[in-house]
Each structure stands twice: as structure tokens, then as C-alpha cells.
């Protein structure tokens, strides 16, 4: 425990996701001791980000305008929507440059333990986007964990409608790695989830 304001800083930093007490302490002392560290710039950005950034009216991605850059881009195909849990997943998929359609950010996954049910996710907004028949494929790209799978299967029941294809991202072995170094759990799962490629 440190005195007063120093401990308060450590406590506040420790509330951030992914930052434990040790890292919080390390960051706090970096801020205190490093002269080159521009505290007022950080403070400004923190305030600004709260004021300026909001969520895209259409897809729920982060943006500084009513609609995000992806939704505004006329070159993107409006026929495909990729459904993800968080805005950071949009960024991850964008980095692949593989996908040319639009996104829909749910804002989480179904998880009773965390008090999240379907009504807490942006599912109603998704259904509205599908109403006029422009969209012909929904790709469900929720996380490949239990809650992500549960959300995917809830959605796939809900999204049964004519002329709509619903697909799920394949999960399995990490690419770029060697098969022999994949751990047995991942490798075992990959076997379970194998797909037919021929015949």
C-alpha cells in the first residue's frame, strides 16, 4: 500500500482489463518517474475519446461519426454481414483484408454467469438489417469458446429465413505453426472438427 494519491492511481489502473496489481504498480511508477512521459497528452486523449467516439448507428463499430468508415465505404458489399462480438474483432478481421462485406458488432456473447442474455446484445438491430432482403449471407464470427458457440447457435436458430445463407468461421489449428507443435487439445479438436474436402 502506498500513500494517498499514488495508491488511488494504482487502484484505478488496476481496474482496467488485463492489468493486475503488479502491472498497475509498474505503470504508476513509470508515470511518476519518467520525465519524458507526457501526462497531459494522455489525459487529453482519455477525455477526448470519451467525448468523440461513439458507436456506429448501423453496425455498432467504434467511430467518430454517426456511421463508421466501413459502413460509409461504397465499395463494401452490402450482401454479406459478418457478426462479431466486439469492435476489436472488426479490427482483427480487417487486418486480414480477406473480407469485403459489412460487420455487425453484438457487444458481447450470451453468458448467464456474466448476466448477459440475448436481449443485452445488438440482436434486434441485426434482424432489422436483414429485413429488406439485401443481405444474402451472414457469417457468424463469434469467439470459438463456449459462450461464442452458444451465441452462434442461438443466432443460427434465429436467422432461418428464405434466401439467407448462414455460415460459421472454421476453428482449428493456428496457421503458420507446425502440426507437431500443436498441443494435443487443439490438435484433438481439429480432428473432431474436420471437414470433407472431397467425396
Amino acid at each position: 500500500m502506498y500513500e494517498g494519491i499514488v495508491q488511488e492511481l494504482i487502484d484505478e489502473l488496476g481496474r482496467l482489463p488485463g492489468i493486475g496489481p503488479k502491472s498497475a504498480q509498474r505503470i504508476a511508477f513509470h508515470i511518476l518517474q519518467t520525465e519524458a512521459f507526457d501526462v497531459s497528452r494522455l489525459a487529453e486523449v482519455l477525455v477526448e475519446v470519451r467525448e468523440k467516439v461513439r458507436f456506429c448507428e448501423v453496425c455498432g463499430n467504434v467511430t467518430e461519426q454517426e456511421r463508421c468508415a466501413i459502413c460509409r465505404d461504397p465499395r463494401r458489399s452490402a450482401a454479406t454481414i459478418c457478426v462479431v462480438e466486439e469492435a476489436k474483432d472488426v479490427a482483427a478481421i480487417e487486418r486480414t483484408r480477406e473480407f469485403k462485406g459489412l460487420y455487425h458488432v453484438l457487444g458481447g456473447a450470451i453468458s448467464p454467469i456474466d448476466g448477459v442474455g440475448p436481449e443485452d446484445l445488438r440482436i434486434r438491430q441485426l434482424m432489422e438489417r436483414l429485413a429488406d432482403g439485401t443481405v444474402t449471407e451472414v457469417i457468424i464470427a463469434t469467439d470459438p469458446n463456449l459462450e461464442g458457440e452458444a451465441t452462434a447457435s442461438y443466432l443460427s436458430r434465429l436467422l432461418v429465413q428464405p434466401n439467407l445463407r448462414v455460415t460459421r468461421l472454421a476453428s482449428g489449428l493456428p496457421v503458420g505453426g507446425d502440426l507437431e507443435y500443436a498441443d494435443e487439445v487443439t490438435l484433438g479438436r481439429a480432428f473432431e472438427g474436420r471437414r470433407v474436402v472431397q467425396g
Binding site: 448467464p112 454467469i113 463456449l146 494435443e184 487439445v185 484433438g188 473432431e192
Partner: peptide
């Protein structure tokens, strides 16, 4: 005998907790 089953066991436990929480609420 089959290391993959450790993942099945822990997933099952988690489904159970999720489902029980849902039933309770």
C-alpha cells in the same frame, strides 16, 4: 489416455455453470 477430454471436461463444467445460472435467474 486421451488428453483432448480435459477440454471436454472443463467445457462441460462451464456449460453446467452457465445453465444452472440461467435456470436460477
Amino acid at each position: 489416455r486421451n488428453p483432448r477430454l480435459s477440454a471436454v471436461l472443463s467445457d462441460y463444467d462451464r456449460v453446467l455453470r452457465q445453465r444452472n445460472t440461467l435456470l436460477k435467474s
